[in-house]
Design a protein around this nucleic acid. Structure first.
Lengths: 343, 343
DNA sequence: GAATGGTAAACAAACGTTTGCGCATCAAAA
DNA sequence: TTTTGATGCGCAAACGTTTGTTTACCATTC
């Protein structure tokens, strides 16, 4: 039914090989033939079959996105579209298509991985799943699957990854609050199974320690990565005997929940309670008050991961690389630093 | 390098056809052979090549998502992840993979469409692009490409679509405000090129008319589909001589911008100004005050579109269908209806 | 004992490309 | 005139499956 390369060849009075070479802009085709074939292609409205091409080329010119099992949570977080935007930008530019793999009906990460790459549908994968179990990494290595992790591998596995310096970022955020005079600073984190949570918690603790402050476990809570989690976490922290005067939330969505909880209990932000979030999602600046938050440049994270993956696909020999995307604290109103210039 | 069906066949002492039939659970294979082949597949860690399969089957078991050219705006709007979530859910369940097509380097919709489906990478497409130009629809029809539009076609083209009854929804939202006693109600819409904007505007106007109110063009503004657009729109409306006492924003993101503008000018919501948004994005209930908004059930929109597309792919004969997803007004604080029960 | 029927598996063609190799053709050099 | 070297193009194999048809085998039946 659909017109194929043979139809074009026949109509143009040449062989399929010639048509193929015209498509590939092979220089060994005369200008005259090239033009004639091109005209026929247009006339017949011919479009090369990408599937057949992939089969013979042994490459699909597509990259896969492995989305965490906690789909709902992940999609709900503005992190997702933003990182996707970055990946998209680079992939498009390099001529790669994007394949999405989500997990719903009980497929685990490994099965999904095999579905995508072992079946040759994609040339490599970007892992958005921050809680990386080792078996997955083993499968990747054993099968020489080009892959890039967004986040940091829990173990010292040899895989390319792109991440923020989360410890440093949390350290900086905490220091910011310390400089504003806060003594008791609380921490609301996501699931402790996530490397990112542990890193940020660690940076927070180190900052307190360096400032001579005490790390009080009652001021630390870890919740689901949802607005509701932030809400609950804040409620918990505010119930402690000596309540904190400032909060670090390891995600803006958590921070939003925290702000809601604080508001409901009648605490004013930043007067009674300073809050610093993480990620600088678009709505952070629209919060009331506008939220101070650590911008981790998610878009760049996405871009860089795609770049690294494509590099890996096209030069399979290259060693795993790491890349740290810098962070910048965006000072708004929620931390109580009315004049950012003095900091 | 990678193990293929022939390797399995050889090792099991059978032909490739037999292996293929084992994979397909063909009943003509004896139980004994089936088990033996299965064992070998596991032993060799064999995974069928989806590309080769697609080639011979003439179907890729994948559906494509055509994302509007206004990528940045689209990704920024929480509508996107939510509709994607719905699509994903159904697609996964039916065994279809998801392919993303975004437009960056100047490819227009048609080119992208051809890239995806004419090249057989996907079996059908979901069009997320609400401003559907006719040429695109023509291409779809001429090539018998299974497709579903999310939104309503501008012309009376014969294409399957799933949508909200946007006129009715806007009518209902406006009526809600009228019942609360508002006389001058403003409307902040997205680009007038979008069908959805025009539909909602139309419903708004009809509601005013039915209530005996006058439609005042000075109370209507159309802006970019961004928070910033809502901000500017609100500024514009508040600058009119007789300023409105209530606002309908055709998108929650616009409503957020509107609320910010109102806040900056010192107007209190809902006391000085009532606001009703559209979409009920997750953050709507976290706004300050929590936002009254028309829930259009985006997730369902996504689910239904995927269902319709897959149905179309698997039963090519079926006629184009339409589906309206119901809307429900979620009354919170921003509209000033303190006791939703009385309505 | 030959014909029939049923079951299990093999054969081979197809799907639409790409690409190494070989074969003409022709002009220039020997 | 023969050799050489480009140049332009065709041949055919390969990529890894699926599937309609055929074959081989064995047990019934006449």
């Amino acid at each position: 039914m659909a017109v194929n390369i043979k139809d074009v060849a026949m109509r143009a009075g040449v062989s399929p090989s010639t048509v193929s070479r015209v498509i590939a802009n092979n220089p060994r085709i005369s200008a005259e033939t090239r033009e004639r074939v091109r005209a026929i292609m247009k006339e017949l409205n011919y479009h090369p079959n990408a599937i057949a091409r992939s089969l013979v080329r042994q490459s699909s010119q597509a990259i896969g996105l492995l989305i965490p099992n906690t789909i709902e949570q992940f999609f709900l977080n503005p992190f997702f579209p933003e990182v996707l935007r970055g990946i998209t930008q680079v992939a498009q530019h390099a001529g790669y298509d994007l394949f999405l793999s989500t997990a719903l009906h009980g497929l685990n990460d490994i099965e999904r991985l095999e579905q995508m790459v072992r079946s040759k549908r994609v040339d490599g994968v970007i892992l958005l799943t921050s809680r990386v179990e080792d078996p997955l990494l083993t499968v990747l290595q054993e099968n020489h699957i080009p892959a890039v992790l967004i986040g940091r591998p829990a173990s010292s596995a040899t895989i390319s990854w792109v991440n923020n310096d989360n410890k440093k970022a949390a350290y900086d955020a905490t220091t910011h609050l310390l400089k504003l005079g806060h003594k008791r600073i609380g921490f609301i984190g996501g699931s402790t199974e996530l490397v990112v949570t542990m890193d940020r918690l660690s940076g927070y603790a180190t900052a307190l320690q360096d400032a001579g402050g005490a790390f009080d476990p009652r001021l630390v809570t870890s919740e689901e990565f949802l607005e509701e989690g932030g809400y609950i976490g804040m409620m918990r922290l505010l119930a402690t005997p000596e309540r904190p005067s400032a909060i670090i939330a390891s995600d803006d969505v958590l921070a939003f929940g925290a702000m809601r909880a604080a508001g409901e209990l009648g605490h004013r932000i930043p007067d009674d309670l300073a809050i610093v979030g993480f990620n600088d999602i678009p709505l952070a600046k629209l919060a009331n008050p506008p939220m101070t938050t650590m911008n981790v440049h998610i878009y760049e994270l996405g871009q860089e991961s795609a770049k690294m993956l494509i590099e890996q696909i096209e030069w399979p020999a290259t060693d795993p690389r790491e890349h740290l995307v810098p962070h910048t604290l965006v000072v708004r109103r929620s931390c109580g630093a009315w004049n950012p210039l003095v900091l």
